[in-house]
Every structure is written in C-alpha cells, then in structure tokens.
Write a protein that binds this DNA or RNA. Structure first.
Lengths: 244, 244
DNA sequence: CGCGTTCTTGACTGCTTTCAAAGATGGTGG
DNA sequence: CCACCATCTTTGAAAGCAGTCAAGAACGCG
C-alpha cells in the first residue's frame, strides 16, 4: 500500500476534526502543526498504554484507529471505546497518575502531543475544541452503554455504524455515506458484546436486506434516513458554547 | 420516617466523600457548608434534568440516589450511570449547552451547587477533589460498559454490588459490608441490561447460595474476598496526584 | 504460491426473555 | 387499627436470541 501518501497527509483529518469543533486561530493551527511534526507511531495490534502504567501525556490521534480495552483474566475482552483521527487521549483526567484502561492500536496509528491550550477561560480556540471533544467522548460512552444494555445484536451493529459515520464525518473521512471500517468481525464482536460468529451472521443478514455494503475495509450505509428511524438513532448535538 | 434527622445530616456523607478524594482546607469546607445550606430537593422518581434541556450548574449530590437515563422511543430504558452522595454533576463538560442525557431521582435527593474551586492549577483541595471525582466517574462508565458487554447476569449483579459498596464506602455509608440499596429490581434490570424477572431469579439464586443478603433496602455481601475472585473485580485505584 | 488470519456455515445448547398471574409489601385513609 | 390499593416481588411454562463447537472456504500477505 502507498504508506507514503498516507503519512504525508497524516494529521490532516485530525486537524479538520478539531477545527470543526471550534474555530481555531492561525496560532492554534501552527501549534498543532508543530506538534504533529514529531508523531509517535504504533503498528497495528500494538499496545499504546497498559492499564496501571503511568498515565500518558495528553495526545491527539493523527491517523488510524485505536481503542480502549478491558481484558478479563479468563480471556474475555471488551472494547470500551474507539479513538478515531482527531480524537483526544487523556485530556481531562490528567489528575489520575495511573491509566485506568489499556489502549491498543487497531490499525497503524500516529499520535502526537496535544498542544496545551493556555487558559481555558480565555476562549482560546484549542481549549474550546478540547472541551467539546471531551463532552463528545462522554456522550459516546453513554451511547455505548445504552447500546450494550438495551439493543439487539442487529440494532447494535446499525447504531454503531451510524456513530462511526458521524464521528468520522467530523474528520472529513466520510464520502457518500461510505467510510473506512478497519476492524475485524472479532474486533466488532469485542466492541458490541457479541461473538464473532453472531456478528458475521448479523452482518450477512443486513447485507442481504440491502442495508449496508462492506468491502475491503470500507462500509457504506444504503438508506440512512430509513435506517435511523429503525433504531431510534440520535445524533450528537454537542457544539461549542456560543458567546458567554 | 424521621426525615428531620435525615435532612439535618444531609450533606454529611457528601462532604466525607469529597474530603476522602483530596485534603480539603477549612476554607473549602466552609464553602461547601455554605452551598449545602440552600439545597434543592427532588422527590423520588422526579426528573432532575431532561435530555436536551439547558445544562445544569455544576452540582453535588448531598443525599439520595439519582441516575442518568436513556429512554428509547419504544419504551425500553437504560440506566447509564448512578449518582451517589458526594458525587458531582456537570463539572467537566460545562461547555455543552444542552444536557446529553436525562437525570432522574431514584430516592429523595438533595442537591446543591458545587462551589467553584478557584484555579485548578493552584492545587486547591476542592479543585483536586473535583478532578479525582471526574476521573472516577469516567472509570465507572468504563466498568459499566465492560459489565454490560461481557458479564453474565450473575456476574453483572455481583460486580455492580461491589462497585456500589466501594463508591458508598467513600461517603462512609458502608458498615460491615452492608450498605443502602434503594432501588427496585426493575431499576436494577434497567441498569444491568436485564429484565426484572431475571434479576429476581438471579438474586434468589445468590441468596440461596449465601453470597448476599437483601432486606429492607439494605444489601450485605457475605464473603467479599471469595466473591471478588469469582468475578475478577478490580477496585478503582484512582487517587489525587501526589506532589507535582 | 503457501501459510496464517479472517470469514462463513451448520447443528446444538443454553441463558435470558416473554407472557401471565399469584403473592407480598408498604403506605394511606377511614 | 385495619382495610385497601398500588407497587413490588415471586413463580411457571414456553419461545427466542445469541453462544458454543467444529470445520471448511476465502482472503491477504510475504
């Protein structure tokens, strides 16, 4: 694959996301660019941070997918949340000295330090983007809980795909309801609280019904309008607080 | 019931929790006491905040249990998280103008504004307590996800009871592994992603096995040491960051 | 081209839900 | 103090969604 081009544009979509969350000044963008100049790279499946290890510096996902994972002693695994391009790690809760969960790279991942945002009260663009990003992260956690607690396998998968679409769209990674989905069916199972066998069956059912297309790591939602009504999907309506 | 005494001591356990998270100065305690002088009261089952409504001022639960809820259009309900005495609402993500989830009182609840903590960087006791509380809140969300995603009904209930014990212990509300559990089996079902029927059956099984005692809104774990090994329970090890 | 990972399929099991109804509990008002 | 009512708990039988085990096919990478 043409990794060169991928790395050349690394961070591009990440910046796009942050700029979408709050207006960024040239100064903000310069700080981001400087930070992204020295990315840390992780290969797929590599552990970025282990539960119980000293916490990480606040960071930005420049490219690739990562996830938080809880590994049980008997082998069971649960993906707690996903970390997509432009999303942040360890911004808000830096007061905890130890990482509460492991972080694992699902694909090649480029990471960089999140430039500090100055005083949060001054309405700096970066500070605002960070705050909105934090609010979104919490929102996604709530959604994951509702998904696991009350949705059927079928509903979980649709709901999850919609969320991924919306989150990737912030980074400009969605074109025509088609978006990258670089995760195995076993990975999906670990995220949705199912088995890979059942994920497979459900996926095939959805394909037969013409609801989604899956090819080569890309997903496409066929009739979003109709699907959203099927599953009571509510997009995030979290934006930067206007004025003051 | 002797509500008078209950209200006289309202906030007592809440203060205890915050003081357990970080050392509080007399100034901090005075600010808390002042705030708690003007509590807002909610009757059981009352809605504290509706999804989509303007967000609430940062607040402290002085007494009682509340929860975040996601209500589906077809009647399904999922309790996303619990809010116990001394826990905080809306501290970190005040930048979102609208509430992302509904808040409902499970019992009578007394609420008060969280006194502002001055500059977070100055190591004020309150600011530190708020930060640790935020980290814990996130940790509990992760745990809820793992619980719903990968544990059986039996395991979910034990795991949840352990978490409640530990959280209530911070507020000094646990004596001899016995603690208040003012929630119906249907409420438990909504929190654990089960049906009330199955919660009931599972609870009875656990009682028959002599693992727990449940009487009059109080729960008691019989042999915590043994139980914890059964379910791979990991206590939170989040504390205030030392030094700096 | 060969090997390992991932995907697919089938048969069977089982945990959990559903539906329905009876029993207990607790608070309220007469 | 007791009857009454709503809410909560308990129980049974039957159905269903998802898990388990196992093996073969397809895919992608080196």
């Amino acid at each position: 694959v043409n990794q060169n081009r991928a790395y050349a544009s690394s961070g591009n979509s990440a910046f796009k996301r942050l700029a979408a969350l709050a207006p960024l000044s040239d100064q903000d963008l310069a700080a981001l660019a400087r930070s992204a100049d020295a990315p840390t790279r992780f290969a797929a499946h590599r552990e970025i941070l282990r539960e119980g290890a000293p916490a990480m510096a606040p960071s930005i996902i420049l490219s690739g997918w990562a996830c938080r994972v809880r590994q049980f002693s008997d082998g069971r695994r649960q993906i707690l949340s996903f970390l997509l391009p432009g999303e942040l790690i360890g911004m808000c809760h830096q007061h905890e000295p130890l990482a509460a969960t492991s972080l694992v790279a699902l694909t090649h991942v480029d990471l960089c330090r999140a430039p500090s945002a100055g005083n949060e009260d001054e309405g700096s663009g970066l500070a605002e983007a960070y705050a909105v990003s934090g609010a979104l992260e919490e929102f996604y956690l709530f959604r994951q809980i509702a998904r696991l607690g009350r949705l059927s396998a079928y509903e979980r998968m649709l709901d999850w795909m919609f969320e991924m679409r919306d989150r990737l769209a912030l980074a400009g990674l969605v074109a025509d309801d088609s978006f990258p989905m670089p995760i195995t069916q076993e990975g999906l199972a670990d995220a949705l609280g199912l088995t890979s066998v059942h994920v497979n069956r459900t996926l095939q059912l959805m394909r037969r019904e013409g609801l989604v297309e899956l090819r080569g790591g890309m997903a496409r939602l066929i009739d979003p309008q109709r699907l959203m009504s099927l599953i009571d999907y509510r997009p995030a309506h979290i934006t930067a607080a206007r004025g003051g």
